[in-house]
């Protein structure tokens, strides 16, 4: 969601499109909160992110279009969709 928001902003710059992005901005913030909550529960993932931040800080990241096949171990991948669905289900139960 956060990435889509950035893409939309770039698209507006390139096309002079007039569009209200406030809803996407809110969705992006919501998504970010959920991801942060998820990440906090996973020390291994926190470590991975910390390393990525370090690399990011040291080098000006060059767009690489790296893809899935370059490989990241399954245990370091979070399926955010499943997580958010679980959250929704829990909220529904509580509600």
């Amino acid at each position: 969601m956060k990435v889509a928001y950035s893409v939309l902003r770039s698209l507006i710059d390139l096309t002079e499109m007039k569009i209200d992005l406030s809803e996407m901005e809110r969705a992006s913030d919501y998504f970010d909160q959920q991801v942060n909550h998820l990440v906090e529960q996973d020390p291994k993932l926190l470590e991975v992110i910390s390393k990525l931040e370090e690399v990011y800080r040291r080098s000006e990241k060059v767009p690489s279009l790296s893809r899935k096949e370059e490989g990241m171990k399954e245990d370091k991948v979070v399926y955010i969709q499943a997580f958010l669905k679980r959250q929704d289900d829990e909220e529904k139960k509580e509600g």
Binding site: K2, V3, V39, I49, E53, K61, L65
Partner: peptide
């Protein structure tokens, strides 16, 4: 959209 080795804690790259 492409996956990349970037942290979500930084502004997204386009």
């Amino acid at each position: 959209g492409t996956y990349d080795y970037i942290p979500h804690t930084y502004p997204p790259m386009v």
